[in-house]
Structure formats: structure tokens, C-alpha cells
Simulated assay, not measured.
Amino acid sequence: MTRQARTCPGAAYDLGYHVVWCPKYRRLVLDGRVKDRLEELIRARGGEHGREIVALEVMSDHVRLFVKPYPKNSPSYVASRFKGFTSHHVRAGFAHLRSQLPTLWSRSSFVATVGAVSVDTVRRSIELQDDRVPTGGGARA
């Protein structure tokens, strides 16, 4: 995937979040029609709020999502929006899930940022900043 910055008023950004979440008790309930409906809901929710769904995989016991969100949305906010929306709609459409589980999703999720620059590169860039700034006559921020 090539790197492509997106813009919004006052910012240019290239953010990506890898989000993973599981059903309560890691039950094997995300298959068949439930899986299809869940994928449909996640893609629809992403499109509604300008979040680009880059990759999505629904396994029987977890969901893996690579999403490029708006920069004002924190990783935990993005995860909670997908989990809350899908839980409400999936449980409404599949009565057997309401009887099997007190809630569809576990309380936790995993979120990692995804980027084209490694931690070491960023650290080195910051540490070497003073070496690259010209000395003399100009204001420094």
C-alpha cells in the first residue's frame, strides 16, 4: 500500500489503527449470517464517519480491522464506536446471541497505530534535530 496523506481543515495526516476485539468469553459466535451482517455493519459505519476501512477479517472468535480514521478520533474512541454500533444491531437481528451472551463484545480491545515510519526512525530524527537546524540569525520554535 502506498502512503497517501489525507487532509482536513488545519491538518494533513496519514493515520492507521489496527483494532482487534472479541465476543464476550471468546465464544465462537461470529460465523455464517452473523459474520456477513457484522462485516456489512462495520463497512457501513466506517463510510458514515469518513473512516477508510483498509482491511477487515471476521473470524469466529474475533474481529481484526485496519482503519484509517479522522485525526481527532482517538484509538479507543474508534474501537468503541465500532463495538457499540455493531453490538446493538447484531444483537437486535439475532435473538440467539441475546440468550447466549449478556453482551456481544468483551470490555477490552487491542489497538495499535500503524505507520510507515519506525519508532527508531522517529527517535533518531528527534535526537538529531539540533544538528540539522542552522545556527545564527533566525527564530526557533
Rank of each mutant, 00 (worst) to 15 (best):
A12M: 11
Y13C: 10
Y13A: 11
G16W: 02
Y17P: 00
H18I: 04
C22V: 14
Y25W: 10
L28P: 10
V29G: 00
L30Q: 04
G32H: 09
R33K: 12
R33Q: 13
V34S: 04
D36P: 00
R45C: 07
E48N: 03
G50H: 08
A55H: 08
A55K: 04
V58N: 02
F66T: 00
F66Y: 10
Y70C: 06
K72P: 05
P75C: 06
S76I: 07
S80V: 08
S80P: 02
F82L: 01
G84W: 00
G84H: 01
T86A: 08
S87N: 12
H88L: 12
V90K: 01
G93K: 14
G93R: 14
F94W: 02
L97G: 02
S99D: 10
Q100Y: 02
Q100K: 10
Q100G: 02
L101I: 07
S106P: 05
R107A: 10
V111T: 13
T113K: 12
V114C: 11
G115H: 01
G115S: 13
S118G: 13
V122Y: 11
R123F: 02
R123D: 04
R123P: 00
S125C: 06
I126N: 07
E127K: 15
L128H: 11
D131E: 14
P134T: 05
T135D: 05
G138H: 14
A139K: 06
R140I: 11
